[in-house]
């Protein structure tokens, strides 16, 4: 079973900050902070598993504070996108460290990408 995650001020190397929020009845939000690599991909996977268990209509993953994304982390995100099925996952980030790996692998097609959290949480367009 997962520990309830606590917000951490600034994760060190090998640590990933993961925080769950419920901004409103329709949205579940996972906020991730730090570097996603082979050291931390497991933490992300556990957090995503928990997010996918949420029955909210819209699942949002805020990666704005993620400063590195390795293929191990990308693989975890891609698996989550497949598991989410028709509930397309919304990702928040403008950082090159996140956008670039998604673009070059084409995995950006699996998600709805948003520049900021407010846009990702806004009512349906």
């Amino acid at each position: 079973m997962l520990d309830p995650t606590k917000p951490r001020p600034s994760p060190g190397p090998g640590e990933l900050g993961v925080t769950f929020e419920q901004p409103d009845a329709r949205h579940a939000l996972l906020v991730v902070d730090g570097e996603i690599d082979t050291l931390t991909a497991g933490s992300l996977e556990r957090a995503l598993t928990e997010l996918l268990e949420d029955t909210s209509e819209v699942l949002v993953i805020d990666l704005s504070a993620v400063t590195f994304l390795a293929s191990s982390g990308l693989a975890v995100l891609i698996r989550a996108a497949h598991q989410a099925g028709e509930r397309r996952l919304r990702l928040v980030s403008t950082a090159r460290a996140v956008r670039r790996p998604m673009e070059i692998t084409g995995s950006d097609q699996l998600f709805d990408l948003y520049p900021d959290r407010a846009a990702a949480l806004s009512p349906e367009e």
Binding site: T38, F68, L69, A70, S71, R96, R100, P101, I104
Partner: peptide, 20 residues
């Protein structure tokens, strides 16, 4: 350029992770 810096950083990470 910024994309190439990002790519090299990821590539080196990937190579090292594979070898470790």
């Amino acid at each position: 350029d910024l994309d190439a810096i990002s790519d090299l950083r990821m590539a080196v990470d990937e190579a090292c992770a594979t070898l470790v």
